[in-house]
Design a protein around this nucleic acid. Structure first.
Length: 217
DNA sequence: AATTCCTCCAACCGCAGGGGG
DNA sequence: ACCCCCTGCGGTTGGAGGAAT
């Protein structure tokens, strides 16, 4: 039934964002908060699609973003969470304060996949490649992976630092649903870098796929 | 020094789900 | 109950920068 375009493409910029566009977007969100992405570009005087604004904000401009290399712990956490959740990047990102789903997805595809491959582990199933080759193609990460947990290589079980086989690395996968994050109040200042992220431990962050959702009033 | 190849990451695209009218 | 709009997600692409030849 013909999806309506997300925006008037004829009048929108595409590609890399300029400094000025960034400044406009940040200024607007500081003043009015996140949300209403569709109307935001016009209100902010940006010739961009709302989707693009949202992505730019979430992946690059948000003040609580942690830039820079991933730590070994983050690596391990990503590997473990991916084993349990599959390509649920947003949920995984919810466990890594200051990291975005896009960033984690990129990191997975560029670094971790290769890392696992070098260890002889299939990045999809988290099983040893020899097993994966023989396994049925329908094997899914998650339960299968849990079953295969004992096959964590010495390196990966570095990730699984738990002595027991409980939940890999002792990660408390508290998958409970929690209320969405309090949207940044328009009047209040946005959290400074690391303020939001740094104050939480990785494990304390509720996995809440909707944590970014519905920041609208 | 020039060219080619490779890696990485920002950004785009299409789809699905939720919510409101 | 249905339809439409909006948002968010995951997969993919394109290009900039670095490494190798």
């Amino acid at each position: 039934m013909g999806r309506s375009p997300c925006c008037e493409k004829a009048h929108t910029n595409k590609g890399a964002w300029t400094k000025e566009e960034d400044q406009r977007l940040v200024a607007y969100i500081r003043a009015h908060g996140e949300g209403s992405w569709r109307s935001l570009p016009m209100a902010a005087g940006l010739q961009r699609c709302g989707k693009s604004c949202r992505l730019r904000w979430i992946n690059y401009l948000r003040p609580d973003l942690k830039r820079g290399n991933f730590t070994e712990e983050e690596d391990d956490l990503i590997i473990n969470l991916h084993g349990l959740l599959g390509n649920k990047w947003s949920v995984i990102a919810g466990r890594l304060p200051g990291r975005t789903d896009n960033e984690i997805k990129n990191y997975w595809n560029t670094h971790i996949k290769r890392k696992l491959l070098a260890r002889g582990i299939d990045a999809k199933t988290h099983r040893p490649l020899s097993v994966t080759a023989a396994a049925s193609p329908s094997s899914r990460p998650g339960q299968d992976q849990l079953a295969a947990r004992s096959s964590c290589s010495p390196e990966t079980s570095g990730a699984c630092h738990s002595s027991d086989d409980d939940d890999c690395g002792g990660i408390d996968l508290n998958l409970s649903i929690s209320p969405p994050r309090e949207p940044p109040s328009p009047s209040s200042s946005l959290p400074t870098t690391q303020e939001a992220a740094g104050s939480k431990t990785v494990v304390d962050v509720d996995v809440d796929a909707s944590s970014e959702k519905k920041t609208k009033p």
